[in-house]
Amino acid sequence: MGNEPANELRVSLLVGLPLAAALVAVPTFVSDVFWLGLGITVLMWAALATAWNISGGLAGGLSLGHAAYFGVGAYTATLLFLRFGISPYFGLLAGAVLAGALGAAIGAITLRLRGPFFVLATLAFGIVVHIAAVNWRDLTRGAAGLLLPFGGGARNMLFAGVAPYWYLGLGLLALTLGVTLAIRRSPLGYYLVALREDEDAARALGVKVVRCKVAASAISAALTACAGAFYATYIQYIDPSSTTQFEISVQIALIAIVGGIGTTFGPALGALVVVPLGEILRASLGGGPALMLYGLMLIVIVLAAPNGVIGLLQRLLSMMRSGARRRATTRRSRGHA
């Protein structure tokens, strides 16, 4: 959980650039809609977990209400397009601004709460937004949902094929990771980690705790809403159960925790593990057995990697490194003998 932004930047350039090039090329090689679709879903959840991690991981405020922001993004972009013909590109921005303001307001109210009380407050907030989405039928059409017209065109972020959404998803993930890296290198990033470690000490050093948490909450909410707008234009149909449902909040938090809470790349890695696991199990077993197996496998993952997938990777890497060093020393001593 160390805060080593300079080091992380170097690693992200070394690993990130070739990886990014490979990711950009994926649709050229993968044309199967199932696999490309799975990839897009992974990208979306990776972006969501990364966005969640800004408030949930860096600021340490475990939120179980992020589906609310996801829903705000999805509904804002969809409704602005359906009612006023505003392109979802702008709808996405509007949703981000709206969710950011909501995140700041909710943040200002709930972030004074500590520990489990904060978690409960975010949970209640998420449920309130879900109930609103179900019952405010004049606006959302409730459980009937909203359909975006097929073939709205590239200008309206509504593509006929799947490949464009791969690139949009990639952009979304790059945005959330970029914002995370920028925060970690800024005073705000240091303040957030400091207040997560010890709030009283941070305060005594002059850190404006509430202001920092509100900022983190607003940024996290705005990015989550971007993913919501992306989801709406990708699936082209939204309803409360696919956007504001409690399970979505849990899934976002779960992925970030499995991947490595508080780290820059852990939450995205978590999506790479958790999402395909869930999807493949569902596709091969279906229904109940799949869910049970999914739950069991998550328990195994958390037991095997208590510091997240990224913690496990780091441990493996350092083991390999020290192993290589040992072998090199042995070779040298043999040479001398």
Partner: peptide
């Protein structure tokens, strides 16, 4: 603090850095 409150997960340098940042210094 009498009962010390270090930012345990941060390096010693970053612990001190937080204090300097609140004076308005850049990172």
């Amino acid at each position: 603090f009498q009962i010390v409150k270090p930012f345990g997960g941060l390096s010693v340098r970053d612990n001190v850095l937080v204090g300097a940042l609140t004076r308005g210094q850049a990172v």
